[in-house]
Structure formats: structure tokens, C-alpha cells
Design a protein around this nucleic acid. Sequence first.
DNA 1: CCATTGTTTGTGGAAATCCACAAACAATGG
DNA 2: CCATTGTTTGTGGATTTCCACAAACAATGG
Lengths: 405, 405
Amino acid sequence: MTLFDPFQTQFDSLEEFAERISKGLHCPITIEDANHRLVAYSTHTDDTDVARISTIMSRRVPEKIINSLWKTGVIPQLLRSGEPIRVPDIPEIGLYNRIAISIWKNNDVLGFIWAIETNAWGNEQFLFFKQVAQATTNKLLQLHIRKHRKEEQNQEVFWKLLTGHIISDDHIAEQFQLLQLSVPKNFATVVFRFQETIKEEQQISYLLKTMQQFYIPFYTIDQNELILLIASASPLTVQTLKTFISSFTDKIKECFRIVVKGSFGGIHKQLSLIEKSYKQALSVLATKKKFPDQTETIHGYQELGIYQFFDLLLEQKQLGNFDNPTLEKLQAYDKKHQTTLMETFEVFTDCDNNLNQAAKLLNIHVNTLAYRLKRISEVGEIQINNVHEKMKLYIDLKLIKYGRM
Amino acid sequence: MTLFDPFQTQFDSLEEFAERISKGLHCPITIEDANHRLVAYSTHTDDTDVARISTIMSRRVPEKIINSLWKTGVIPQLLRSGEPIRVPDIPEIGLYNRIAISIWKNNDVLGFIWAIETNAWGNEQFLFFKQVAQATTNKLLQLHIRKHRKEEQNQEVFWKLLTGHIISDDHIAEQFQLLQLSVPKNFATVVFRFQETIKEEQQISYLLKTMQQFYIPFYTIDQNELILLIASASPLTVQTLKTFISSFTDKIKECFRIVVKGSFGGIHKQLSLIEKSYKQALSVLATKKKFPDQTETIHGYQELGIYQFFDLLLEQKQLGNFDNPTLEKLQAYDKKHQTTLMETFEVFTDCDNNLNQAAKLLNIHVNTLAYRLKRISEVGEIQINNVHEKMKLYIDLKLIKYGRM
DNA sequence: CCATTGTTTGTGGAAATCCACAAACAATGG
DNA sequence: CCATTGTTTGTGGATTTCCACAAACAATGG
């Protein structure tokens, strides 16, 4: 039997193209772009598995499936060569026997074509499939360029937002609509700081587009910083953003063996607060740098708590506006008697006044800790049950450290 | 027997005068000014009791004795009339039988003369004693005027110090020496705020001079404020200053039935910090006015703790630099559900995280409190074990109250 | 050298906290 | 109306904290 030659006629759309291939191969066809977004699919109804259905329904390949395809080495292989490969059953994700091929332009992969192998393919089919992939290149390329152009526009708008160049909420919403992006109801700015200038732009872009937890209308890369706008129709919570950051940094670590630090600023509804949220995210990273130990699990600006004040307070402290006699006395005592009252107080407060936990951290007996605390109140002339004084001492203590850096 | 007439000859000093009276009456004589400072005393050695010895040794009547003489009505009586009175034994304070008289100039008492009644006095002696008192007036008056002039100088210098017009420590020390005041090693500025303009200047001056706990090189009255410089050679502690303020306010309440609020600024060694200490004392009073409940037992600037920051933070808050989503969420929740999560958190933190105490204050069951706290962490998206966030929330909460006033 | 003070660790019992679970009731939205 | 959710109060038992007291040892100053 001779295969139908799809290249003889003109095609208006990729949909039509997919349909023709499907008819030629007698099996369902799906075309994706490089980020596993659905580009086109055939309407071949028989023999369609769960994986394909969910891909089509959500107009992208579900993350679970992408992960699985990475783990089983399918995607890596597709990214290495343009040869069609046979993908075995992965019943856990509802994916059955299929053939996949990547679409190339020079050294870049533009997308993928998937065919469910309903009837066993021979050499003929494989050859045809390769030709199909080559023929798809141009179509996809146009799509790619259009997208690329759009992304450049996005970049420009995003930077305007980050630097506060568009002030009114309405104007910002307008920009979103012009770029055909839905206006976010709730958003937060997320920043990932890499140790070096980011070179893995392609892969990161790929990662972001395949992690489908959030709607990310904008993202950009600035030197060693990856900046995202994360949006959601439902209220964003600190917790979800934290897990997003953890999972992203984990993934980066896994893929590139690079340690990155992530943070997010305020969660807002007002679009004009994007700049503020961005600055807050940067502020978190700065604080994390100064207090690596205390802020290890902190990612959100909210979580910074009193550290939010520190720049301001430090400034005043350096003007001599806030001295702390208690602190001075404790410091003098520590120095004279080779004790560690200050550290004791710090750790104790860090542990939220939990004796056991603090004692463990300090490697001392609980009673020793209690004794020291009593001593601190005597030496420092501080009422240990007065919250205000304790907070002040704690803040001043941290400020000293903060100021040193 | 005729008494020796002391008025026949001239006297260079009050000491000599006292000596003559002593010889005339055959008993020890002590002359004090209106503030019970020793002015002169005879060297008559026999029959001198403990009270007299300690008065002479410290060059003033000990406070314990003054208190006792007030309580037994001796001093009030002396302040009412110029008649000599017989003071019965008060063994508890080592004071034995004596005769006392006040020295008058117009309607003011300039001082007192004390005679220990070693041999029973008759009319003759009493008459002579009255003449002696009258003769003392002029001598004491000169002393009084000299003192008064000196006090006016003091006032001027003190205000210069309070307003920071003398900058260098050396210059300030020089001023102290010029006024024949010993240079304080440790000092603090204390301010008492009366409800109305202070009219009881004389009595307050008397009180201050008779309360001998501290060296008070300067004091002044400004409208309804009494400002003191309290000094000591040994290090001043917060505790001693607190008890001073309490005892002074108690005394004012007792004497004039007036409620006054007292405060003190920073305790320093550097004299150029007098202005700062003064401002801090005023700052304490301002804060006490805004948070009467929380700051009831607070008198020192140190004790203000985080309230020290409040003016600064409020300013920033009004600039919109510090929002607190947690607070907003809790406020919204409280309003919607008629709950009191914010107050709960505030009281709980005020109680230094003590569940029982806070529950009692809130009139709720301990478990209810625990439940609410869990709720607060859910609703406010706050990690209840994160000290920084809790402090921030607490501060923001107080700032709202602060800002309202 | 001794006496004093400061520091760490231990013991043991009273008090407080934590936690899970349950009953009772109010408020809410369908 | 019911079902659900939120709120308050209660019970009971494991764990932790609080407190007073004591033993051991180091550092200090006379």
C-alpha cells in the first residue's frame, strides 16, 4: 500500500495538517511545541488513551506525564536526535504505545509529533513520519517567530511594571489585554537568584512552561536573577508560593546542579503594586544573605517579620538614636567573663522561648539555660517578662549583626 | 541667774553664734535651714543623742527623722507658728527630749533651731530662745539670698543643658564646678508631669531636698513639668530610679492629693547626653499617655522597649512602606465574624505567651485561647512559631493603636 | 591558703502546657 | 429544613516548665 502524500497540497492550518497525517498513518496524531503545549491534533477518535485526552483537554501535556517522560529518558532522547522513537506503555499515567519524533530547525527543537501506534508500524511508516516532521518545521517556525516577537513585547512591558513605569491600575490591565494575557486577580513577584549569570535560559523557560502550578503571565532574566510574575484567579497563599519556590529550586538543582535562592514579595490584587512586590522580593534575598541561618526557610516578604524594619532601624541606630544599655551591659559581661549571655538570649528567643529546643541548640542543660536567663535579666537590668524590652533587645542584637555586614 | 545676752556683741559666723547660745542655755544647739540642712551647731559635747550626731555627720537631718517629725506633727506645728515647742522622746529614731523653734521672715520659715533639753527649761529659757530665733533671722536671710541667687544661676545652666546648648563634656563639667556642684559620674533626667501648672513649688523644693536618696544637682519647673537631674557616684540602676519615682509620686499624692506621672530617660555618664536623656524622659511620658494600660509600670526609657521605635515606624507606615497582610486578614475576619482575634493575639503576646495569664485577662477558657491562636495562624497565614512574624504582627497591631491618637 | 561568687548539672514535685477528642451550641448557606 | 462550619468549654494523659535545693567545680580576690 502506498501512503498518502500530504505534501502535495497546501494546508491552511496545522489542524488540517494533523488530520491528514492521521488519515495517512491510521492513528491519532498530536503536535506539540517545544514546551509541550498543544499545537494541533487529529480528530481520530478510536484508540485514544487517557494521556492524550488530558493533553488535549488542557491544551498542554500534563506535568505528571512530562516528568515521567523525562525520567524514562524519552524526552532526552527526542532532544538528542530527530529520529522517531517508540515509547513503551506507561500505564501509571495512562499512556500507551506510541511513536514520537522531534521537529528540528538547525540545532533547536521546535516541537514534537506523537502518534499512537494502533497498528504495528513498519519501515515505511517510520520513513513517512520523518518526512512529516520535516514538513512541519516551517509551519512551527512561523508560530515560533510570532511567539518570540510577542515575548519580546512581554519583556518590555514586564520591565515597565517592575520599575513602576506604568502607574495606573487601568493602564496596566490594558497592557495585559493588549498582550492577550488574562488580567491577574492575585499576584506576587518571585525572584530566583543564581550564583552566576544565567545561561540556561532555554531550559528554564522550558521548566517554567511545563510547571503548571501557576499562571505566569511574565518572566524575565536579568543577569543572575530570574524574575517571575505569578498570578492566580483564586487567592494566593504564602504556603503555595513557598512550595512553588521549593519545588523550582529543587528542580534547578536536579537539572543543572546549581543552588539558587528564591523569594517572593507581597501578594497583592492591585496591579500597580507589582513594583513594590518586586522590591520586597529583592529585600528578602538581601536579608537571606545577611542572616543565612535564621532565614533558611523564609521565602516570602511577610515571613521576614521584623527584618522588614532593619534597614530603617539600622540607619537610625547609626545616627545614635537608639542605644541599648542592656545590650551594652551584656556585651561587656560576656567579654569580661568569657560567657555567652547574648548568644543564649538570641537562640532562646529564636526558639520562641522554648527552653528545651534552645538548650539543645546551645548544647547545654535546660537548667543552665534557665540560670543564664535569670542572669541576663540581672546583668542586663531587663525584666524578663516584659515583652517590649525583650523584643527591643532581640532586635538590637540582630541589628548589630546586620550592621556588621 | 541671768542669761548671757548674745546680742551685745557682733558675730562673724553662725557657728560662733550657736556656740554662744549653747553656753547661755547649757545645752547643745543645732541650727537648720528650711530644708533641714545643717547651718550651724554648737560643740557642746555632753548629752548629745543619736539623732543629733547623725544630723551633724551628714550635714542634714536624716530623712527617717524628718518623716517621723512630720508624722508626729512637730514640723507642721513649727511651720504654723514661731513659738518654741517641746518635742517628746522618739526613741525609735534616737531622738530625745528637745525644744524646737522656727525662724521667720515675714510669712516664710527660714529655718529651725533645736536645743536638747538637758535641764528642765523655765519661762526664762523659753523667752530667751524666742529672742535667739528672732536674732537668727538676719543671718539666715543672707544665707537664703545667697542661695537664691545661686539657684537662679543653676536654673539657667540647667536649661542650657536640657536644650543642648552646652555641647562639650568638659564645658559642662566646668559649669558644674563653677556652681560648686560636684560633677556627676552617673546621671539620668527625671520628669514628673502634673495635671495642672505646678503651684506647689516651695513644697516640692522642700520635698526634693529632704528626700535624700539621690544627689540632685539641678531641678526646675516648667509649667506642669518638674524636671530633675539625678546623679550618683555609683552606677544608677533602673530599679532604684523606679523606686524613687514611685516614692516621689506617692508622696505628692499624699501631700497634695495630686496624681503625677514620672519618667526617666537614659542613664548615662557622658554629660553631653543630658539633653538626650531629657527628651527620652518626655518620650516615655508621651508613650504612657498613648498606652496607659500597657505602660502603667513603665517609667524608664529602657523599659519602653519597642515603643522606642514607634514614632519612626509610624511615619514609615503612613508612607505606606510597611503593610501587613496578616493584620489586614485578621481585621477583616474580626469584622466579618464579630470575633476578637486581634485582641486575643495582642493580650497573649502582652502576657509573654503565657496561656493561663492571657486566658484570665480575656475571660475565656484556656482551650478557647489555644483554639483562637491556631485560628489566628490559619486566618492570618502566620507561622505561630516564627518569632519574626509574630513580633512584626504585634508591632503593627500596636502601631495601629498608636497611629489613631 | 580560704571564702566567696559564679557556673553547670542534677533531682523531684507542683504547676502549666500540649494534644486529641468530644459535647454543645451558634451561624451560615443551600 | 438540614448539613456544614465555627466557636466555646470540657476531660484526661503525656510532656514540659517552673522552682527550690544541692553537689561539683572554676575563678576570683584577699
